[in-house]
């Protein structure tokens, strides 16, 4: 299968990358740094609900939460986006009207991608037609693991075309690709095929996002920028539940790709339960003590 990428794909040493990632967790983030970091994390959050049981009520609540996560005195910014299944897009768009917060929709046969490409593209066009401004697609992991890189690349390009103006996030499901070498390869492939964002996981497979996997993604977008001048975003998703974890990701981004990536345009958290802990911590910084989780509305 002759398929070649424009840029070379460096190897990744498992021990080395995990060791490096662990070092980011040793940073001590206190006071103003913590405050800034937590607010940044909220502003980068794709507040997500992806359940079979999602109801209009739940979507409405999520959208309210995204507009104003906390009481005004905490100065907490709105979330970056709300992420739902295609069926909920129209309602979410209506709920977020006037807020400037975009609706992201998973598509392309999320989470498995095990559907004919025709249906997957139709999925994308439907979501975009409903008003989704961001599309989170899944790649065909089977094709990638088979070595059919051309197919994976072609599919991403086709989805990108169907996205029209919508931003495309490409989900790899790194838990299924397993090796860091695969993660680096698929990252480069997705970037060259037109991804606006590269994203670790669906949240439906364990392990989902980890610090070392996300580090490989961030290194790839950084190297791509240095080679071409083009900036691509990164989105870890799934498994990030605590404010502390979120801060560790931000430390990693800061020290790997630099300040330019510390913006919702280039870094997002895909999370459903992270916001609660971030609120708890922000309130603690302002009020001086921890409050019961019952004092915060659920997302």
């Amino acid at each position: 299968m002759a398929f070649s990428l424009q840029s070379s794909v460096p190897r990744v040493d498992q021990v080395g990358v995990e060791e490096r990632a662990a070092k980011f967790t040793r940073r001590s983030i206190k006071n103003d740094a913590k405050r800034n970091g937590l607010r940044m994390a909220v502003a980068m959050m794709d507040l997500t609900t992806l359940e079979g049981a999602d109801s209009p009520g739940k979507v409405r609540q999520l959208c309210r939460k995204a507009r104003q996560p906390m009481a005004a005195r905490y100065n907490c910014p709105p979330c970056a986006a709300v992420c739902v299944y295609p069926n909920q897009v129209a309602q979410a768009v209506a709920e977020l009207d006037g807020s400037g917060i975009p609706v992201a929709s998973v598509a392309t046969g999320f989470p498995s991608g095990q559907y004919p490409i025709k249906l997957r593209l139709e999925d994308v066009r439907f979501a975009v037609g409903e008003g989704a401004r961001e599309i989170d697609m899944v790649i065909s992991r089977g094709a990638f693991l088979e070595g059919d890189l051309a197919r994976v690349s072609d599919e991403i390009s086709a989805v990108k075309e169907s996205c029209d103006q919508a931003h495309l996030k490409v989900i790899f499901e790194t838990g299924e690709l397993q090796t860091y070498d695969n993660v680096r390869l698929v990252s480069q492939l997705a970037i060259e095929a037109g991804a606006d964002f590269i994203k670790t996981s669906t949240g439906k497979v364990s392990p989902a996002a980890t610090l070392p996997v996300t580090l490989v993604l961030v290194e790839t977008v950084r190297d791509h920028f240095l080679a071409t001048g083009q900036r691509v975003g990164v989105k870890p998703a799934g498994g990030i539940r605590t404010a502390k974890q979120a801060l560790q990701y931000l430390v990693m981004v800061k020290e790997t790709a630099g300040d330019d990536w510390l913006t919702p345009e280039l870094f997002r958290f895909g999370a459903s339960s992270l916001l609660g802990d971030v609120e708890l911590q922000l309130a603690k910084l302002e009020d001086g003590g921890y409050q019961s989780a019952d004092y915060f509305s659920k997302g």
Partner: peptide
């Protein structure tokens, strides 16, 4: 790359 003060420790 810009290693500045966006998220100062």
């Amino acid at each position: 790359l810009n290693f500045g003060r966006a998220f100062d420790f």
